[in-house]
């Protein structure tokens, strides 16, 4: 699709008509950009230990007395600027979120296409596995895979492998929903005439699946991928909050919340509440965008 055709499409038109969609897209975009561009935008580098001073610790956020404009969201126990820590944390959260959704989408599309196009025994077996996994909540599956990988890896490799392990475990926990949807759409597309035509001219099954069927089932996948990003970010934050997620050397939003939780009773609420608000805003805006996309791509609801 060319750029002009995209700008004239129904979805873009529906987007311009919906203030809720524009607002949530704006919030999501601002958050994603400030996370991705953190090393250039953040006022301070929280990983640079040399610039930290314990004299700066636990400064309250901006409107309070004694607070400084520089530390808008206050500082933590080691004098780290919370705003910068949150921006770097978002970067890690988003990295894990995007990568695990990429894994889930790849797995889901391959398995869904295979099951739907081939039918028969592969279909029954693959969908049975998906059904069984769907009965367990994603967070539990991710926790278990994470635990098994942690136990299987040698002790020296655990810290360095933690990020890939988390990405993989969240990715695996999310595939069944996508595979089921792709399979459903493939079943509909499989018997249409263009597939028959492709088969008549001698295209292989793989070619028909990837070149002809896949583009026609991508709409629902896009919706599930958007909602999946929200879920992946939330799952990662939950795992990190439980202390089985990312190591403290690469703090994500969840790690920041867990760490700040220890200071709740001594009155330094901002160390945990600001990362929390950021997480809620991010997940909420992504979810609202996904919900809107689902309605916009569904012609029956228009």
């Amino acid at each position: 699709m060319s750029g002009r055709a995209f700008l004239d499409s129904d979805v873009v038109h529906a987007f311009r008509q919906s203030p809720a969609a524009i607002a949530s897209a704006f919030v999501a975009l601002v958050l994603i950009l400030s996370g991705v561009l953190a090393p250039w935008l953040a006022p301070h580098d929280p990983t640079d230990l040399a610039t930290l001073s314990l004299l700066d610790s636990f400064k309250p956020p901006w409107p309070a007395a004694k607070a400084e404009w520089v530390n808008l969201f206050g500082t933590d126990s080691q004098g780290r600027d919370m705003l910068s820590a949150i921006m770097y944390g978002m970067r890690v959260s988003l990295l894990v979120g995007f990568c695990s959704v990429a894994i889930a989408v790849t797995l889901g599309i391959l398995i869904g296409l295979t099951a739907g196009y081939l039918g028969g025994a592969p279909d029954t077996i693959l969908m049975r596995i998906a059904d069984v996994q769907l009965t367990f909540p994603a967070i539990l599956t991710a926790l278990m895979i994470n635990g098994i990988a942690g136990a299987a890896l040698p002790r020296t490799m655990r810290d360095s492998m933690q990020v890939p392990v988390i990405i993989l475990s969240i990715g695996i926990s999310l595939w069944p929903g996508i595979a089921r949807t792709v399979r459903g759409s493939t079943l509909v597309e499989r018997d249409k005439e263009y597939v028959l035509a492709a088969r008549v001219i001698g295209a292989t099954s793989w070619r028909i699946m990837l070149r002809h069927v896949l583009p026609n089932v991508l709409g629902p996948v896009l919706v599930l991928a958007t909602l999946g990003l929200g879920l992946a970010v939330l799952t990662e934050a939950t795992l990190s909050f439980l202390g089985v997620g990312l190591p403290p050397t690469r703090p994500s939003l969840g790690t920041l919340i867990r760490y700040g939780n220890d200071f709740l009773f001594s009155g330094q609420w901002w160390v945990t509440i600001f990362p929390g608000i950021t997480l809620v805003l991010m997940v909420l805006s992504i979810n609202l965008l996904g919900d809107w996309l689902r309605d916009a791509l569904n012609p029956r609801l228009r």
Partner: peptide
């Protein structure tokens, strides 16, 4: 529906316990 469970817990602790 939108608030993560652990944040609900933290907010309740902040309000009713702290």
């Amino acid at each position: 529906v939108s608030l993560p469970a652990f944040l609900v817990g933290i907010l309740l602790i902040l309000l009713f316990a702290v």
